[in-house]
Every structure is written in structure tokens, then in C-alpha cells.
Amino acid sequence: MLSEIFEYRDQARTPATYLALGAAMASAYLVHNLSLPHLHQLLAVLFVGVVLWRIADNPIRGFRLSQDGLDFFEGRYRRQIALGDIASVTVYEARGEGTRCILNLRSGDRLSLPGAHRFGTRRLVAEFGGLGLPILI
């Protein structure tokens, strides 16, 4: 079922973040030009700073599944897992949380796959099963 790469990625650099940056810069400009109190100016500059920090830091959360293995990333944490290191994959539907996917590694570690809620159980079972990995449902 895996054609090339099966991937889920969520990051801070989105059109909404850049829209927030524009709004922050416009508000800082207006606050400064209207000569509002220094507290308002400070708050406007802090707003710009927070949005710029979020864009610069760009925390990424997700995974990439390919024939070579699985790349797992959450914030600054990155891990590459060879398919041979995965003992089994547990896929289930959690009430109120959507689909959950747990990687059971041969080392005994268990990793919860970020973004599994975006896909149905059938899709995840098909993608992992297509690579010959044992699936626990």
C-alpha cells in the first residue's frame, strides 16, 4: 500500500502564523504612531517577539514512513527507526481521542506516533501492514 512516503507533519510555520505576524507588526506600528502609553507599546513589541520566536523556532511534530524506516520527530526530538527494530504496531480507536498508534520496538520501548488521529485505523493498518510489520488491533 505504501507507494513512496507516508507522512504527517504539523509545524508552526503556517499561513496563520504569518497572518499573526502581520497583525502583530500592524498593531505595534499603530500603538507607536498613536503615542499610546508605554505599557501598550511594550505589549505590542512582546506580541511581535512571540510570533517571531514561534516562526524562528518552528517546532515540528510528526512522522515519515518509507521503505527505509520511520523518522519520528516531535519538537527538537528526532529519531530514526529501522523497520527491523519495530517488533509490532498497535493501532486502535480511543474514545474521544481518535485513532492511536503505538510502535512496540524490539528494545522494549513504546512510542506513540504523533498525528495518528488524522488517519483512520484502516489506513494505518494498510500502511504498516504493507511493509510486513505485525499489526495488533
Rank of each mutant, 00 (worst) to 15 (best):
I5F: 05
G75N: 15
V51Y: 10
I86M: 04
L124D: 03
G49Y: 13
D109Q: 08
A26S: 14
V45C: 11
A23S: 14
G120T: 02
S66F: 08
A116V: 03
T99S: 06
S3E: 07
I102S: 05
F119I: 00
L36R: 08
L36V: 12
R9A: 15
F63C: 04
A12P: 01
F6H: 00
F72K: 00
S107V: 09
F128P: 04
R54H: 08
R110M: 13
A26F: 11
R118E: 05
V45F: 12
S66P: 02
H117F: 10
V31R: 04
S66H: 05
A56W: 13
L103G: 03
F6E: 02
I137N: 07
R54S: 07
F6M: 00
D109K: 04
L103H: 00
V31E: 05
A116F: 01
Q80G: 15
L70N: 06
E97C: 04
R79N: 14
L124G: 00
L21W: 11
Q11D: 15
G96T: 06
Q41G: 14
G84P: 06
G84A: 15
P59G: 06
I137A: 03
G129K: 04
L34W: 12
N33H: 14
G115A: 09
L103N: 01
D57T: 09
I60K: 07
A82G: 11
F73Y: 15
G130D: 03
L113E: 05
V48S: 07
Y29S: 11
L111K: 02
T14R: 14
R76V: 15
G115Q: 02
P37D: 09
T14N: 11
Y29H: 10
L42M: 15
R122Q: 11
D68P: 09
I55G: 08
H117C: 07
A56P: 10
D10G: 05
L34F: 13
P59F: 07
L65G: 06
R61Y: 13
R95H: 09
F6C: 06
A82Q: 11
I102C: 03
P114D: 10
F119T: 02
P15H: 06
R122G: 07
D68L: 13
L30S: 12
Q80E: 13
R123D: 03
F72S: 03
R95F: 13
S66W: 05
V48Q: 10
M1L: 06
Q80F: 15
L52M: 13
E74R: 00
